[in-house]
Design a protein around this nucleic acid. Structure first.
Lengths: 248, 248
DNA sequence: CGTTCTATTGACTCGATTCAAACTAAGTGG
DNA sequence: CCACTTAGTTTGAATCGAGTCAATAGAACG
């Protein structure tokens, strides 16, 4: 954890998508950040809140979710270090979903006013933020596809591929493995399937020999096959090849 | 159709979400627009294209979609007059989905360079565009919920409620009815269900007496009940109450 | 008018859910 | 260090929502 430079990982992530102007990295670097440890499953902002801070994932994982019918939970996305999950509160006064820690997480909080001020005079910063929102939207669209058209095995494989790639981009996954502090129920709620069925799919993936899966540690034994199973093509994540030059 | 002022409906739509600065309405008003009639089901931009123009829906409906497995189609959103469906191509070089006309549509095309120039010097315009992307993302998120957690009857009801409200905002739906040139297969592909099942759901909605449904003309007989059936709460669309002042 | 969409219906099948129950791992407190 | 508890995973059986296939009916259109 680079507590001294909380935006390093953010910049690394941004650089995977676009050339970040120096103006923007300076503005981001000067934002005042309060760093907090968040215990597992704690809610950071709740649906209906009017947030006063923008958060930055520094370590660990968060997830966006909404409750349906009081009891069912749909996870709409996972957030990994370098993500800024609630930038939207700059314009949308009330959050339309909740944000929670998946496992223990370290989150930076920036006062809304500071972000607003920084954005007030900089076209470049607004464009970088807008760009990020576009990527988020592209991921949501892919999840719409995932939930609308694919069966359970495909959905799970797809989510695994996405996470693996996003983690690699911020330097948190090796070529064939990563770890994530979820339980099968979390995966189930992200894929819109029951916990029991999620379990059966996980077993099937193990049986097929494409992943080793110890709940929190995942090893992709056969990435090409997993991508095929998951109907995964990375283009919707919109990474550019320039990536290497910008890794800090 | 206000061909002379193609951005009127866009401004009306924007005003439902935020106070549009005069700077922005001027910049938009000065954009060069080529108006074209698009026949039903014609593709406007295809997945993988690098678009040279940004489109504006002036009349009729468009839809975003992706093909899966070569044969299955998932519709990810419907676009109504006043929407700007492919603003993202300002930053994302390759479109990750296709855009087609649902029925006959009238679409305005603005050269990408013109939009880029207008955005280059205006923080306000960038923020308005960013804001729109945030709303789009919020709608995608709600569709993730819809497909992930709700059964077929609920999904269809929800989509109906959303369309009805969005059309009312741009003045294209009466309190209890609107029309949309789709067939049941379009609805099915938006809700991630089979055509046969979509048909059964439509019949069920008729039987319940909440809608009258003549394929293209839809009358909401009991809006409150439909919203309840569809688990629909409008907050995710982020309309503000100020709306009335800005209606042209 | 015949051709082509679109809507509708019925019978059968299947993927996924539900409801338990059993099993395992990981604490926690005595 | 063990009994007890709790969280998470695994299993099986019964059920159900939705899909598939195939046929029919109706509307729209040249």
């Amino acid at each position: 954890m680079e507590a001294g430079r909380p935006f390093n990982r953010v910049l690394r992530r941004l650089s995977a998508h676009l050339l970040v102007p120096e103006e923007v990295s300076n503005l981001l670097g000067n934002l005042p950040v309060t760093v907090k440890n968040v215990p597992p499953n704690q809610c950071i902002v709740r649906e209906g809140d009017a947030p006063t801070h923008v958060s930055v994932v520094l370590d660990g994982y968060l997830y966006r979710h909404k409750m349906v019918n009081g009891s069912q939970r749909q996870i709409m996305s996972f957030l990994v270090p370098g993500d800024m999950p609630d930038l939207q509160c700059l314009f949308l006064k009330k959050l339309d979903h909740s944000l929670s820690a998946l496992g223990p997480a370290v989150v930076g909080f920036v006062p809304l006013a500071a972000v607003r001020d920084a954005a007030q005079d900089s076209v470049a910063l607004n464009q970088v933020f807008w760009h990020q929102t576009l990527i988020d939207a592209a991921i949501f669209q892919e999840w719409v596809i995932n939930l609308g058209q694919r069966d359970a095995l495909t959905r799970v494989s797809h989510v695994l591929c996405e996470l693996h790639l996003r983690l690699k981009v911020v330097g948190l996954a090796r070529e064939d493995r990563f770890s994530i502090p979820w339980i099968q129920a979390d995966l189930a709620d992200a894929c819109g399937i029951s916990t029991v069925h999620a379990n059966r799919v996980v077993q099937e993936l193990r049986r097929l020999g494409v992943v080793e899966w110890d709940t929190k540690r995942i090893r992709i034994v056969n990435g090409a096959e997993l991508a095929k199973l998951g109907d995964f093509r990375a283009d919707y994540l919109h990474y550019v090849e320039r990536q290497a030059e910008f890794v800090s």
